[in-house]
């Protein structure tokens, strides 16, 4: 359980980091928080010859509110997201998701960009990003900068649109303007903070009459990548989210999932969990108190 030998380089600029990636190609790996990569290296599932440490590149770190979005730098720690009043206020689903992410010891190191590029199918921040259709900024020495929507970023388990010489530099989280926005995130795992057997999340905006004005919803751990259901969300618009509506949407979503079986849970149990969790989050977010609507 010791990592294989590697060369360690700590670049002083993003351009230098990109140059190292271009130079070493698949032999190099970026490390930021290392909370997913280091376990993989300890188990020898990853054996990079060169480790490029981007932890101290200040330009990759920070939380900035812009028009209609909040941007988080790739190496912003999960703990910093958790403690950001700006982010929690503007993109409440991120705060709701973080409640389920690892433990304080891992959130102190783990980064938002790391969660994205590791792309565990049950990871919480990727699910939140997919539901909200966040935009991921990527950069490479030869390809320059590009932006990929979350819907095109998470391809399969531990497989994303990130090229082998690219670095995720930041994530734009869309802000839902106006009153009546509520969200909920729930998951079931063996131990709080462990990988979810199934997770469900939604963000809902209610009209003053209590009907749904806007919705977004999805499931984690139920396929090789997180799942969002924009058509099911759209079908909720104009409706009141009662138990029947929530159950109907949850069952439709689960019927499109392809959960696997492992020692913790078989596919049938995961479907059961996902339906219960999605129904629950829809009811919780869709039944926001009237006081919240006026806020």
């Amino acid at each position: 359980m010791k990592a294989a030998p590697f060369d360690y380089i700590r670049p002083v600029t993003v351009a230098h980091a990109l140059e190292l990636l271009a130079q070493h190609g698949p032999e190099a790996k970026l490390i930021a928080g290392g909370q997913s990569l280091v376990p993989m290296m300890a188990m020898r599932l990853a054996r990079p010859a060169v480790l490029v440490d981007v932890n101290r590149l200040d330009s990759l770190r920070g939380i900035a509110a812009g028009p209609g979005t909040v941007t988080t730098g790739a190496t912003t720690r999960q703990r910093d997201l958790e403690e950001s009043a700006v982010l929690r206020g503007a993109v409440p689903l991120v705060g709701a998701a973080l409640r389920w992410v690892g433990h304080v010891q891992t959130r102190n190191r783990g980064t938002v960009g790391g969660s994205f590029v590791h792309a565990d199918p049950s990871a919480e921040l990727p699910l939140a990003a997919l539901i909200l259709d966040a935009r991921i900024h990527l950069s490479s020495q030869d390809g320059g900068a590009r932006v990929v929507p979350a819907s095109g970023f998470f391809i399969a388990a531990m497989y994303t649109a990130t090229g082998e010489t690219e670095c995720v530099t930041g994530i734009d989280w869309p802000v839902w303007e106006g009153p009546g926005v509520a969200c909920a995130f729930e998951e079931t795992s063996i131990r709080h903070g462990d990988f979810a057997m199934a997770s469900a999340a939604c963000q809902i905006q209610l009209a003053p009459d209590g009907t749904c004005r806007r919705a977004a919803l999805g499931l984690g751990g139920m396929a090789s990548a997180p799942l969002a259901f924009p058509d099911l969300a759209e079908a909720l618009v104009g409706r009141r989210i009662d138990a029947a509506a929530a159950r109907e949407v949850a069952e439709a979503a689960v019927s499109r999932s392809e959960p696997g079986t492992d020692l913790q849970a078989d596919a049938a149990y995961r479907r059961h969990l996902a339906a219960v969790l999605l129904t629950r989050v829809l009811l919780r977010a869709g039944a926001a108190p009237v006081t919240a609507l006026a806020a």
């Binding site: 990592a3 360690y8 290392g34 909370q35 280091v38 376990p39 300890a42 480790l51 703990r79 304080v104 010891q105 891992t106 102190n108 190191r109």
Partner: peptide, 9 residues
Amino acid sequence: DPVRSCLIF
């Protein structure tokens, strides 16, 4: 801040 020292080089 608390961290896991097995996950940091």
